[in-house]
Design a protein around this nucleic acid. Structure first.
Lengths: 113, 113
DNA sequence: TATATTTGCAAGCAAATACTTGCATAATAT
DNA sequence: ATATTATGCAAGTATTTGCTTGCAAATATA
């Protein structure tokens, strides 16, 4: 069953987030990744597969080894989604400040909230 | 079954992300939220519950209504996790530039990225 | 060639997820 | 008082998830 497979789903699992962290440091083959976890190699392999399916990881066959490289840019989707709301929560602090500090409008105000 | 319940898990579901978006605009009661979806009220109610369990939503009883308010600050955990890697992928572009462009430091540089 | 290593594939399983429908309950409106 | 509205609770189901173990295959090393 090909289920929904997106970046948000992929990073929902803590093991997969840890894998991303490991690979951000340097590319690694499947076995050396799985050494960092208390689960079977197969379990890790499955996580890798999921990360691959949403292009967070690119796997390159090198002899009998599979070198996994993380594509951190793919996290941009998540970054942007959260960042969109970040302006909301930072504005909770700044919006008030702006209103209070501005006794009247100036010509050079480019934007008003 | 009390499963792992964290923000990453919570935002993995597209319905829940949409709920967050809706509530970012303004707080709403359960029924008016569920009007935006093609699923049963119960299904939406369950999503709300999950969002509540990780403090992304605070529910306030008001008579017979339950007003849902989103706590966008809780997304900071996700923001920071992605941002940590963002420096990696933006550095792919900027790191080289920095090294090349900066022959020495200046006093009047208020901030360096 | 015999053996180690790195990996894939497949079956099996318990738990979680994402829903559904039906009924109960409490607050409000007529 | 009765109907309407907003909601919760519980049971049931199909699918997905996160793992396991066993076996096979391909590559590298002795």
């Amino acid at each position: 069953m090909e289920a929904r497979r997106d970046v948000f789903q992929a990073i929902a699992d803590p093991t997969r987030r840890k894998i991303i962290g490991l690979l951000a440091d340097s590319s690694k083959n499947l076995n050396s990744i799985s050494e960092n976890f208390n689960m079977s190699r197969q379990a890790v392999s499955l996580h890798i597969k999921i990360l691959q399916e949403c292009d967070l990881i690119v796997v390159q066959q090198k002899g009998r080894e599979r070198i996994c490289e993380v594509q951190l840019e793919k996290l941009n989707e998540v970054y942007e989604w959260t960042d969109q709301f970040r302006t909301f929560w930072t504005n909770k602090l700044h919006a008030l400040k702006k209103v209070v500090e501005q006794p009247n409008d100036h010509i050079d105000s480019p934007k008003k909230l």
